[in-house]
Design a binder for these strands. Structure first.
Lengths: 244, 244
DNA sequence: CGGTCACTTGATCGTCTTCAATACCAGTGG
DNA sequence: CCACTGGTATTGAAGACGATCAAGTGACCG
């Protein structure tokens, strides 16, 4: 599984006061900063665009920046020397990246579709945090939530069957983003089967076979390879929870 | 794998100003609070003792408290309805527990040996954090570090072989606590084979077999079931890293 | 159209699990 | 002192789930 290494593209901030009109603001830690200071926030951030397949964070590199996704979806992953890959998460709009205390990144990040993000230097963000304690609180909240998600994923990787993993994955995807309260029946999967496999600790073949099986059993439909319809949400949830 | 449910024991805070003389303070978030305020800190905490096997946090219960381990080792875990268990971490002196934003605990915690910890009510800790921003910063640091560790564990659970998992586990245990810089050659394993299995996503039998194999190859020695000696640290690290 | 890439499907294989028996150790009481 | 017990660990044999290897399909695109 090779990782493309093309360069991300730095954009001129389009229009005045980009932060004030940011799509991601409502979902992001930046909402801790009052409207009146949005212009200042904008001056500390650099807007960057990354084409699909672009790796914009490299595990092990000096961690000079923080990131805030404002568009698209990216995958975070770790690699073993022989190329085995574990995707630790898919991140979308509003997601904050780079919370490593160490001086190097603990994971790599690659754009799945067209991704846009804000980049803050470590030192400037530090200053921002000192000035807006509310932002630090929000970050702690975010980190806590991710920790809970990470533990859930450990349960999945350590103890669930392939079937249960796919069911968990589909169930969680249906609850993503705006549909947090009202799970969608139909949704897109921007990532490839290979990505799903590396996220669930399986192989491409097992992912494909298991999806086919779930479909043949009437739990889901697969209108296209990038789209899923949940036909039996309750049954899927039961399966995801590992009910005996 | 049954989970004992006996009650933890609440102690009278022995002696005056227990926080000032706390063994865990240097390793804990409490070091963000100045010496002069130690007495106040002590009044917000309740010292609790838990015998081996005692479950002192139950996944799903209302999350009213935070915890700070001051003695012993505990295991954190999640269960599936049919009893499958994933241990998400072993926590020792100085470890801070309960960072769930949700109103229920996301995991259970059980004492391995004799554990002592401080218990803070959620509301009182919130007040403490508002008063000592440095403590909030420390918490964010702690959470970030745990997040990095969680990602490493996902890599292990999703992509490493049984051999590599055991090597990783032993290598990380040798670096625990005070021996962070100078890995110990010899150390105790307070947890059972079952605990190790549930931490590494394996079965007891595979853990036992794999340890035996590592021993027969001269990488480790096993003087007793609760003690390990690393004979070939470099080779073990290479194995843990998944070198091809 | 030919080429590439992602996905699906089939057959075989291997690692780890499951089932089962045995060994071990500490604690208890005869 | 030694049999007895319960819990934990080791070891062996058989089985299963998912991996690997291999072939085939379909969609997109130059």
């Amino acid at each position: 599984m090779t990782v493309p290494l093309s360069r991300p593209l730095v954009l001129d901030p389009a229009g005045a006061d980009p932060c004030a009109h940011c799509d991601a603001r409502h979902a992001s830690v930046c909402n801790a900063i009052p409207d009146s200071d949005m212009a200042r926030l904008a001056t500390t951030a650099v807007v960057v665009e990354a084409a699909p397949g672009t790796t914009f964070i490299n595990e092990g590199d000096a961690a000079g920046c923080f990131f805030n996704i404002t568009r698209g979806t990216a995958k975070l992953f770790k690699l073993l020397p022989d190329g085995r890959r574990q995707i630790t998460g898919f991140v979308g709009v509003g997601h904050f990246l780079g919370l490593a205390v160490s001086d190097t990144y603990a994971f790599s990040a690659e754009a799945i579709d067209h991704v846009r993000f804000c980049r803050f230097s470590r030192t400037r963000l530090r200053a921002l945090l000192d000035e807006y304690p509310l932002m630090e609180k929000r970050l702690l909240e975010v980190a806590s939530n991710e920790l809970v998600a990470a533990q859930e994923q450990m349960l999945l990787l350590g103890r669930k069957t392939a079937r249960e993993r796919l069911a968990s994955f589909l169930a969680s995807q249906s609850r993503l983003g705006v549909s947090c309260q009202h799970p969608r029946q139909r949704f897109a999967l921007p990532m490839t089967r290979g990505d799903i496999a590396d996220y669930l600790g399986l192989t491409i073949e097992t992912v494909s076979r298991t999806l086919t099986k779930l479909r043949s059993e009437g739990l889901i439909e697969i209108p296209s390879t990038t789209e899923v319809v949940i036909r039996a949400p309750a049954a899927l949830e039961r399966l995801a929870a590992g009910a005996a």
